[in-house]
């Protein structure tokens, strides 16, 4: 629930999603759901030379389970807020 809420607050921001097959897609976070499925808009594949078949993809849905990392905007991380939320979640189960 913690990360679902966190990503909801991040809607509209630019993120880079790195997938388990090493494909990295940069785009504007359009929406997220409880499985951390992600919808990106205005997407751009980071290594276009390696993945030319992705050139025409402008927005996409990414299944949560294939995500390895999400690179977050530095000003989109409120460290204190995250600590509090994490402690609350750890206590509540």
């Amino acid at each position: 629930m913690l990360f679902f809420s966190y990503f909801k607050d991040l809607v509209g921001r630019e993120v880079t999603v790195e997938l388990k097959n090493d494909l990295a897609i940069r785009g504007t976070l359009h929406s997220v759901d409880q499985y951390l499925n992600i919808k990106l808009e205005n997407t751009k594949v980071v290594d276009q030379d390696k993945y030319p078949h992705m050139l025409s993809v402008r927005n996409c849905f990414i299944r949560g389970s294939v995500v390895r990392y999400v690179q977050l905007p530095p000003d989109g991380v409120d460290v204190e807020l995250l600590h509090d939320a994490t402690r609350r979640e750890a206590r509540g189960g």
């Binding site: 388990k20 690179q71 977050l72």
Partner: peptide
């Protein structure tokens, strides 16, 4: 080096 990174737990 990455400034801030979300890491999915299944990995």
């Amino acid at each position: 080096i990455v400034p801030f990174l979300f890491v999915r737990g299944d990995g």
